[in-house]
Amino acid sequence: MLEEVLATARFNPKIDPVLSIWDWRIAVYLFLGGITAGIMCFSAWAVLANKEQQAPFTYWRLSLWGPILLSLGMTTLFLDLEHKLYVFRFYTTFRPDSPMSCGAWILIFVYPAAIALILATLRQGYPLFASWVERIPMGGWLLGPLMDWAERYRRAIAAWNIPFGIALGIYTGILLSGFMARPFWNNAILGPLFLVSGLSTAAALVVVAAREPRERHLFTRIDVGLILTELAIVALLLLSLATGARMQQEALATLFGGDYTIAFWLWFVTLGLVLPLSLEARELSGRRVPYALLAPVLVLAGGYILRRVMLDIGLEVNWTQLATQFDPALLQRLHP
């Protein structure tokens, strides 16, 4: 028997009694980063594969949402920083050993590539907005020629969006998996899992937003493939944890009878993956599906729940568990 308890007081906020340094703000950032990665990949793929007729929304309009959603995610990331005024320090150095530093610099390349693809499709995708932009004094002078340039090199720009989109999607997973001190995260599968989840949520976004039934059908098919891939990667993740070190097995136990059993199996796997998969498969087989938007909305919700559950479990399973001798429940006995 070995029992270790704190003999002196220690209650450092967000560290004790359970690590809680990252909350919904980081989960939202990871979710929106993933969906942006998917948006970049799909809008670029539509251009490269000449899907103008088959997927007009993806070809002309989808790219606009990438930087908007990414910027929202960056905002929640900024809100999470404890020393906000020093945020510029991310860009005064580059540290290849640090996944977070690599991620900060990947964004430097992601934004121009994503914005260039918007410029290449804005006139056809959002004609009213594009003409308004061209009419404003600075917009007409600067953005008009830029849009001309981007339209001329649309395919080349699209080709650049694919590697940056994939890098962004994988990075959202590697950000967590790079921490050796967190046994649940320290797994190379997290990168591909978050990438596939990001692609799946982006496909679901297209199904929600596209008007053409043919395009919705195409992306429903794509999403079914992605959800099946995601389920296979989740199975590999569980297998990897089950065959890992003791700490990883303890991390896995939180999903099998532990605190996160319901969140993982019911909210993420069942409602976020299996139910939308069965609804989409039913739709593809030609049978009528009630509430057609239910499946993609569930996929989007599942994408967020995946990040939130992964984040919370990873923080809770530690190498160090500091139990305290001080039990606040005992204080209640002093007050009859």
């Binding site: 967000k14 340094i21 920083l81 404890e82 020393h83």
Partner: peptide
């Protein structure tokens, strides 16, 4: 320091803390 807390996540001993200044 930006207060990103990556170092806290990276420490297996949970030996770090967040100052009120951030």
């Amino acid at each position: 320091c930006t207060g990103c807390k990556a170092c806290i996540a990276a420490c297996p001993y949970n030996a770090r803390l967040i100052r009120p200044e951030g």
